[in-house]
Each structure stands twice: as C-alpha cells, then as structure tokens.
C-alpha cells in the first residue's frame, strides 16, 4: 500500500511521514495533497493562542479529552519557536499531553516555526490538510507563545481561542490592537489565582466597546491544571461554531483564510524566486553596497531587483 492509501485508511505513520515531507518542501507530498484535496473540509480547526506560560498546552490537552468523551477524532499541531541562530528547537508541548499519546483517535505533532513569522508556515497549513484527510473531526493548532501582534493564527482557524492569565498587565493591555482583536472565545486560565475576576472584567469591558453586535466573544474562567470548567469552555467553542454555521459565516471565514494562504504561498515563492536570482547574481550585495555609498538610492535599487521577475 502506498502512503496515499495508508493515509486514507487512517495510518498514523503515513500521516506522520507526509507531514515531514511537507515540512521539507517535498514535491511528491504536494502532488499527493493535490489529489486528496477533495477529501478535506470536514475537520473543524481551532487555533489556541496566548502568551507564553498561559497554559495553552495543558488547556488543549483537557479540551481534547472532553472531545474524546464525545468520541471525536482529534489532531493537534503544537508549534514552538525555532532558534534563529542554530535552526534547532526544543518542542516541549507534548509534556502536557502525554496520556493522549496512546489514544488511537488522537494524533499529536510538534512543529518548529522554522523561520516563519507568527509561526504559521506553509507546512502548518499542509499539516492541517493531512490531519483533515486522516479523518480528524477537530484539529487544534497551538501557536507559539505570542506577544501582542502575532495574529497569523486567525488566518487558519475556524475558531480562535485566546488563553489569558491573571496579572500580566494593566487594563490598557486589553484595549491595545493585535491579538486581543482576533479572539472568538476568551479563556482566563489559572482562575484560582487572585486577579482572575479583574482580568475577566477588563476583557469584558473591552468587548463592551465592540461595534459588532451579532456575536460577542464569551469570556470563560477555567483552570486547566485542575480540570475546572473545561466543559463550559468547550461548549462556548461549539456555540461559536454553531453561530458561524447558522449565519453562513463559516464559508466566508474559510474563503478569507484560503485567500491568505494563497497570498502567503505566492509571496513565499516570489521571494525565493527573486532572492535566488538576486543572490546568485550578486545583485543584492552590489545594490546594498551602492545604496550605502550613495551611488544609488534604496527605491531605485528595489526596482532593479523587481526587474528580475517583472518584465515591464
């Protein structure tokens, strides 16, 4: 049996190998996804984001266990940062999910960001498709611990779950632009800590100012480590899904997401096309030098690089 047939039969090794191939830009894997793309679209994708240490992995572990009670098949893509210096990474999200490892209806894959900003790479999008074909009902993408503006996850997920913890900053943090704007559901984790009510209140006050009135993101206090109110949180996620489906917004959102994926792939391919040429012909080096020596200006130099691919 080839890898394609094995994946369709739900073989974990085939699933794992295909993700590896996509991570290494293997064209054979891309051809397989082209053929099997019609088998995707069944999985519901939940993006889990939030600052480092908020408890994203632990919360994902608990949410998945809740879904397993409903007999859903679940995939998890857990992303951790790749070192920009060595290219290596420590992928440690599995530590919080060890007892899911043996469940035959759960597949966990750790991925390094490998240089992509915001952590969402072409390989991540590819892995989502593989898990979808593999037969997952739900796919969780756990992002790297984010700061304030890494909003890439919203371009991939159907529901974005923002995990927050008490006492990370004052209420002005809650009204800043960026990740606070992309959440469909808020979880205030570590709810047993002092300050959880205050954090919830701050988020709620911020939401009061939203203009969108047909959907208001719920804010749920949970404790992942103590397994408290996880079922409430899952219900809110499912309510958001229901809202999207009933108002026809799911398709709208997926069109938007696919647009972003397409643009990102084109951008990547164009970049590598241009850079390959520019670097090979020493153009980049020469132009950077000329700009420094004031022989030319950066704007003219930029046009010269663009001429490598545009013939106008």
């Amino acid at each position: 049996m080839n890898i394609e047939e094995r994946l369709l039969k739900g073989d974990k090794r085939a699933c794992a190998r295909l993700i590896t191939m996509l991570e290494s830009n293997d064209m054979e894997a891309v051809e397989i996804l082209k053929r099997l793309y019609k088998n995707t679209g069944n999985a519901y994708v939940i993006g889990v984001t939030g600052p480092p240490g908020a408890g994203k992995s632990t919360l994902t572990d608990k949410l998945v266990k809740e879904l397993r009670k409903k007999d859903k098949k679940v995939g998890i893509i857990a992303i951790d940062p790749t070192s920009p210096f060595s290219g290596g990474a420590i992928l440690g999200d599995r530590i919080r999910m060890n007892d899911l490892s043996l469940d035959k209806n759960v597949f966990i894959r750790s991925m390094g960001t490998r240089g992509s900003l915001g952590g969402m790479s072409r390989a991540t999008w590819g892995a989502v498709k593989v898990l979808d074909i593999f037969g997952c009902d739900y796919i969780f993408i756990e992002t790297v611990g984010v700061g304030q503006s890494e909003v890439d996850i919203v371009k991939t997920a159907d529901t974005v779950l923002m995990v927050m913890v008490p006492n990370l900053g004052d209420d002005i943090q809650a009204i800043k632009a960026g990740i606070m704007e992309i959440a469909d559901v808020f979880a205030i984790n570590k709810s047993d800590l002092d300050g959880a009510d205050k954090t919830k209140l701050e988020v709620e006050m911020n939401l009061d100012l939203n203009e969108n009135t047909d959907y208001r993101p719920p804010v749920v206090k949970v404790s992942a480590a103590k397994n408290k109110d996880i079922d409430v949180l899952l219900e809110k996620i499912i309510e958001h899904r229901r809202h999207l489906e009933e108002t026809n917004k799911l398709e709208e959102r997926r069109i938007r997401n696919n647009k972003m994926e397409l643009l990102k792939m084109v951008e990547e391919d164009l970049m590598s096309l241009i850079l390959d040429k520019a670097v090979k012909e020493d153009l980049l080096e020469r132009l950077a030098r000329d700009v420094t020596l004031r022989k030319t200006d950066p704007y003219t130099a930029k046009d010269e690089i663009l001429k490598l691919v545009v013939n106008e």
């Binding site: 790749t82 070192s83 060595s86 290219g87 290596g88 990474a89 420590i90 992928l91 440690g92 599995r94 530590i95 060890n98 750790s110 390094g112």
Partner: peptide, 16 residues
C-alpha cells in the same frame, strides 16, 4: 542533551 542537540540545529521533541 536536549539543549546541546538544539544548539546543533536539531529539532528536539521533549516529552518529560
């Protein structure tokens, strides 16, 4: 070991 392998450019999956 995990840290040394990371610094050697490897992706280390650490399970605890």
């Amino acid at each position: 070991i995990a840290r040394a392998l990371r610094d050697a450019g490897m992706e280390v999956i650490y399970t605890g």
